[in-house]
Nucleic acid binder design. Structure first.
Lengths: 168, 168
DNA sequence: TCCATTAACTTAGTATTCTAAGTATATCGG
DNA sequence: CCGATATACTTAGAATACTAAGTTAATGGA
């Protein structure tokens, strides 16, 4: 049974209780998750934000700054700042090629590679805590539904982008 | 069927693919949701952050600053900054009582009360978009599972708080 | 070939959020 | 009734993220 369109002029219908709003629930999940993760990563002087960049580099070392931004889901200026920190901490190096001199390739240092063994499992541990008492099936349902929400919101965002392109 | 504890020393097991991590998915959901919401609220010069405080005040006008912080899920310094903006924008007023002179009570202005009719439904509209193609039942399952994740993470956070109290 | 456009990154400025520490007021045990 | 503790809020400073507007380098028609 698929939901009907609601009548937003009807006060009884136009409210989403904060506690029931997917947006609110997602915010709480993200923040709680992130704090517990950071609590662990900070024991190795890595913030949760930095950890997210490292996670991607552990999987794909040597990609460009732009690719890294896209994979991690951050805008480029955010990546610039994050990489400055990671470079200062001796976790990454940046390399230019003569091929296309605009591009910057990001490489992990040996130290950062070693940290993978300690830091990468931390996310899985928090994940384990977060899904305590849930069956594998329930976890998959949750992931699937969240992905559908993401797709729905992305569709809408794309739609709006097309509209503003037309105007421009 | 409940999951067994994983062996984090096994490389095949210790990875949570970013795309499958509840933390990552929650971050994407929250941010996409928030941006679409802000796109609408900004047409009335209200940011998504401010909107969250207003939503609570529409339900409970005249609560204290601390209560507001707790309900919205923000720390107090965050609330101070947010309220400064809302006060400047003419959306709230702050009142002291002689009863307990530490407390500050937050009240909506008539203008903010009028805005409820326009701004409150916006969350429900985004919610509608986010859950497009899902049955009521599926939405309830999603909310329920997210709440269970929140509970699990809160349990862990409480556990850690008790430990640090013992140390202190 | 050369100029306009696109691509990759950087800089500047702002908003949101946090932690830690400070101030003012209230309460409670001796 | 007074000093220690707790409560309510504020200030200061930092981290993280964003948008908008640069800079530099590559590319693609006329």
């Amino acid at each position: 049974m698929v939901k009907k369109t609601k009548d937003y002029r009807n006060p009884a219908e136009y409210y989403t209780d904060p506690e029931n709003s997917i947006g609110y629930l997602a915010r709480v999940v993200f923040r709680s998750f992130s704090r517990l993760l950071e609590r662990r990563t900070l024991t190795h002087d890595v913030s949760a934000g930095q950890w997210r960049f490292l996670r991607q580099l552990w999987r794909e070392d040597g990609i460009t700054q732009r690719e890294l931004s896209q994979r991690v889901g951050m805008r480029e200026p955010t990546t610039v700042v994050a990489l400055k920190g990671l470079e200062k901490a001796g976790l990454i190096t940046r390399k230019k090629t003569t091929d296309d001199r605009r591009k910057t390739f990001i490489h992990l240092t040996p130290h950062a590679k070693k940290l993978e063994l300690v830091l990468a499992p931390m996310n899985a541990e928090i994940h384990e805590i977060a899904t305590k008492g849930m069956s594998d099936e329930e976890v998959e349902v949750l992931q699937g539904l969240m992905r559908r929400v993401i797709e729905n919101l992305a569709d809408e965002t794309r739609k709006l982008a097309v509209l503003s392109d037309i105007k421009a």
